[in-house]
Amino acid sequence: MGTLDIGMTQMATLFGVVLLPWLLISLLGLKLNQVIAVSLLRMTVQLGLVGIYLKTLFTLNDPWLNGLWIVVMLVVADLTILRRAGLKRRYFFLATFMAVAASVVFSTAYLLLLVIQPPLLYDARYLVPLTGMILGNCLQGNVIALERFYTGLRKNENEYLTYLLLGATRWEAVRPYFREAVKAAVNPGLAYMATMGLVTLPGMMTGQILGGGEPWTAVKYQIAIMLCIFTSTTLACILNLKLSLNLAFNEFDILMEEVVEKR
């Protein structure tokens, strides 16, 4: 049993569902008409292109092409993390790339090699969506971790300097903000896990069921992906913050203002 396809006419009908909220937003005078139009258009074009690309990827199923796609995803994720965390690329690009890549590769490899064990390890059908899901969640966690850490440090500059002047090493002095940042980054994922199935029906599971999969298999996949998301997010955040400590401070342990984007 496969998923029922949506024809082009039905796709056109689908866009009718947004007419009512669009009308209400217009009546409220929110001036979001252009934003809504651009967002809908972008989403449609972007997903259309991804669809074409994924179809090619799945058809060719070439290990190098699959690998290249993952590298592209990692680079885009890296740039997005730094932009949203307000940190400069020229200082943190490599560190963030290394931290995220190492954590995502570790989790995905663990999942594929030890758990799912597909006949072809590089099979695009498994590799691409699983890496994408893990990376997407990792991205959110890293934005929160970096943003929270550097904002916390700048807001509490006097406290941080006091620790330094009381004999703390750089690591000892940043530890309270480091802990807070990691906690803030992993907390949403933990809350999501704790309410999963009760408040939310997770996307991967829903997708598998709609795709004709057995609910029990879908549940097992969902648990697998959640554990790997938690692992990769936690590892990437800790690693990313740790690596950034060597880049964001001067030799006297003072945070360099130039590493942060002016907003």
């Binding site: 620790y163 009381l166 004999g167 703390a168 090493t169 000892e172």
Partner: peptide, 9 residues
């Protein structure tokens, strides 16, 4: 006691 938590002291 705060500074005495640090390795230096």
């Amino acid at each position: 006691l705060l500074p005495f938590q640090f390795k230096a002291h």
